[in-house]
Nucleic acid binder design. Structure first.
Length: 507
RNA sequence: UCCUUCUUAGCUCAGCUGGUUAGAGCACAUGACUGUUAAUCAUGGGGUCCCUGGUUCGAGCCCAGGAGAGGGAGCCA
């Protein structure tokens, strides 16, 4: 018999089909077994009735354990109550591989446990949806650059030179010499762009930062376009068009997946609006609360956020106390106790998060109030400023001391470098860093010395300026940060199949 | 590197001021139930209370050191 996929069932109403997959859930009563089958393309409830199948098939259905693989045949019937709108009335069923004691249960788990079981966690609906969205984003990135005439290039992963200092590099042994895992393909991208005009790299990057925060990975995927004859403003135009393109494709093609993870799409639909472009000076004034945005003040907004958190803490504490009291009342049904217990667990988790926020926000307020002009924006500063906007913002013209050596000095004011950071809304912070590149050999040489980088490693890079230099610009986008924001995930670790981060090398 | 919260059954968590034999729900096993959506109900097997040392008549609880995890700062995409 011809094999079918769950995503195609709507075309098969009334037909007899054979499906293969895994049992993601099972419920049973006397003469009925409900198996929720997943096959990678979707989920579908399959009903096995003792009246319509023979005894051995019914016994096989009854003994199916969670995540056992199986093949079944049945009739496709419309049923509005089901996810996908259809169910299968099974006529035949056989187990392929039995799963004994599948560790991920049908309830909430802690992060550490789930990360240890990442290879199995990927099978769950939420993780599946995130990976589908990640796939769409990757595809759309290639689609955009290819249709804009960019040439994709692969930069080396072993490098002898550190482009932004050595402190965050993973050192490896390269035939007896030290080599570093790439932190950025940008310098090589520039060289390639002098040959091709417009290029983009798409590859892994490694940063040995001992960071344990919701936005850091030790291994992540970066997209780095580099364009000849572009200045910083052309660069910002491109970034804006690019992000708009990717977001619109995700909205158009991942409606189901976004709904599955509960991502409301209002903010994503805003992305058609122009992205505000702020200079560093303006951004600092906004962070310090000296300048309002659409009537919103950063400090006041943060203070009211803190007040909201504290109100919510009081509410949650009250509800927990009430439910705990309720459980104690005699004669309560076991099911009702269980329900209340589950609610209490959930509320306690929320309380933990809220208390964490209540600890963090005062620190952020402090950091925003006392922001010293001339320093880089910290993670909390980014959160503070992006909360005031409903679209990504671009901050450009940074004090040259805090930015990389290769950024071009602003010709109108040499205190500034022509770098640009794109900060995502909803508190997600930096997703893109880029800028116009320095073209002057002498200025570059000075900067390399200033950063105490080994000159001999950069001779080839200086050659790009010696032989026909032109204005050019580019940027780097962190794929996982984009996925995390578009899916509104609480942490980057869910945005990549197998995250590598401080303290996490398995599985 | 620093600050902060945490570690009790396979999982998620209770465990009061240090005091008898450490509990619940889920999962698992057996049984009941013909439409369930984390199904429900009954029964019952399951413990190195993270590790090491200390205080005490007595430690899951107190103290010291260590390990691991969550969140944040710095740094970054």
């Amino acid at each position: 018999m011809q094999k079918y996929l769950i995503k195609d069932l709507e075309k098969c109403e009334g037909q007899l089909v054979t499906l293969s997959g895994w049992a993601s859930n099972k419920r049973e009563s006397k003469g009925l077994v409900f198996i929720v089958l997943r096959d990678g393309t979707g989920w579908c409830q399959c009903v096995v009735s003792a009246e319509t199948v023979n005894e051995s098939v019914f016994e096989a259905a009854r003994s199916v354990s969670l995540e056992s693989s199986l093949t079944l045949t049945g009739k496709v019937v419309k049923d509005e109550r089901q996810m996908g709108g259809f169910e299968i009335q099974v006529t035949d069923l056989a187990t392929i591989g039995e799963a004994v004691d599948y560790p991920i249960a049908k309830k909430e788990h802690g992060v550490d446990f789930l990360m240890d079981k990442r290879h199995l966690w990927l099978r769950s609906q939420r993780q599946w949806a995130i990976m589908k969205i990640r796939n769409q984003i990757i595809f759309s990135i290639h689609e955009f650059f290819q249709q804009e005439g960019f040439v994709q290039m692969d930069a080396p992963l072993f490098t002898g030179n550190a482009c932004e200092g050595t402190s965050n590099l993973f050192e490896t042994d390269f035939y007896g010499d030290p080599a570093y895992l790439s932190q950025s393909g940008q310098l090589y991208g520039e060289a390639m762009a002098f040959a091709m005009g417009k290029i983009y790299t798409f590859g892994p990057t490694f940063r040995a930062e001992k960071s344990k925060t919701r936005r850091h990975l030790s291994e992540f995927w970066m997209i780095e376009p580099e364009m000849m004859f572009y200045d910083i403003f052309d660069n910002m135009d491109l970034i804006e068009n690019f992000l708009r393109f990717v977001v619109s494709k995700v909205l158009a093609n991942c409606e189901k997946e976004l709904a599955l993870i509960g991502r409301e799409t209002e903010v994503l639909k805003n992305i058609v609006k122009p992205f505000p472009r702020l200079t560093y000076d303006e951004a600092v004034r906004i962070i310090k609360g000296e300048q309002d945005v659409n009537g919103k003040n950063s400090i006041l907004t943060l203070e009211s956020d803190l007040a909201l958190v504290q109100t919510r803490i009081a509410e949650v504490e009250k509800e927990i106390a009430e439910r705990e009291e309720k459980i104690k009342t005699p004669g309560m049904k076991k099911g009702e106790i269980g329900f209340n217990q589950a609610q209490i667990d959930k509320l306690k988790h929320e309380l933990g998060d809220l208390e964490e926020q209540a600890r963090n926000i005062p620190q952020w307020l402090n950091s925003a109030r006392n922001f010293t002009y001339g320093s880089d924006l910290g993670g909390s500063d980014e959160t503070v400023i992006t909360r005031l906007f409903d679209v990504p913002i671009m901050v450009y013209n940074w004090p040259h001391e805090v930015k990389a050596f290769y950024l071009k000095r602003d010709p109108d004011n040499n205190k500034f470098a022509r770098g640009v950071d794109v900060l995502a809304p909803e508190g997600y912070g930096e997703i893109v860093g880029g800028g116009e590149r320095e073209t002057d050999v002498q200025l570059l040489t000075d900067k390399i010395n200033e950063h105490q980088l080994p000159m001999e490693a950069f001779e080839w890079y200086l050659d790009l300026r010696r032989y026909g230099t032109v204005p050019h610009a580019g940027f780097g986008l962190g794929l996982e940060r984009l996925v995390t924001w578009l899916c509104k995930l609480p942490h980057v670790r869910e945005s990549i199949p197998f995250p590598r981060m401080y303290g996490r090398l398995l599985p």
